[in-house]
Design a protein around this nucleic acid. Sequence first.
DNA 1: CGGTATCCGACTAGATACTG
DNA 2: CAGTATCTAGTCGGATACCG
Lengths: 130, 130
Amino acid sequence: MESKQVEPNPYAKNCGSRQVIDRIGDRWSVLIVLTLADGVKRYSELAQRIEGVSQKMLTQTLRGLERDGLVTRTPHATVPPRVDYALTDLGRSLLGLVSGLEAWATSHLGDVEAARARYDAREGRHGSAA
Amino acid sequence: MESKQVEPNPYAKNCGSRQVIDRIGDRWSVLIVLTLADGVKRYSELAQRIEGVSQKMLTQTLRGLERDGLVTRTPHATVPPRVDYALTDLGRSLLGLVSGLEAWATSHLGDVEAARARYDAREGRHGSAA
DNA sequence: CGGTATCCGACTAGATACTG
DNA sequence: CAGTATCTAGTCGGATACCG
């Protein structure tokens, strides 16, 4: 078989690496992975910890992460029911990157907000007072 | 709720750091920053290099990045017109992270695809054929 | 060339109601 | 407790048309 393995290129629209970037970029994925950083969590813990996520989005994102092999889902047949979520090795391999993202967001938030304020102030003077 | 300056916390829905994560997470933002990594580019070069982006999304994302202080926009009053885009220092500070993202996506693409195939195969046996 | 404005369809995400 | 199903509003994003 001579199907050449071209290197993954996120600029190419058909390349799967773009899907991977999409998943990482997902607003809830990042927060979920971050929340699972310090160990296994149950569904309700995630829901509580991640402010503003709806049940639908939480479940949906969790399923996506599970599908991509980043988290494991472990249901317990107890009553009341209980489901545990944890990072896989693959998920953990992403942790450094994701917490780097959080760190960047946290430390450069001020810069970004200042830049926005500057830009928005500029909007007003398009040549005429508005 | 809280006018006190608490430390940025992406879990809190009102915290700006979530907006920052959103911007980074944006599918086109990542690709644009990556494309600008090796220097200034003009609008048409970006459009060409980033496959599948529409003019609307390219301009819109570029404006967002400019507003957030990550890229500069430099129009030249020549004919035909020409606009150059480049990363700011802030934008460059993000480069390591973003290319780390690309590297992760590239190197773990196979794992993710395998996990997906495994998961999807599982779907078929929910107890009923479908 | 490098946009902007508008229209409109497709997908997203939230609220709600119900189930194992 | 941990979901699933459904409905719907809002947003996103592509195509098109036109301007500086």
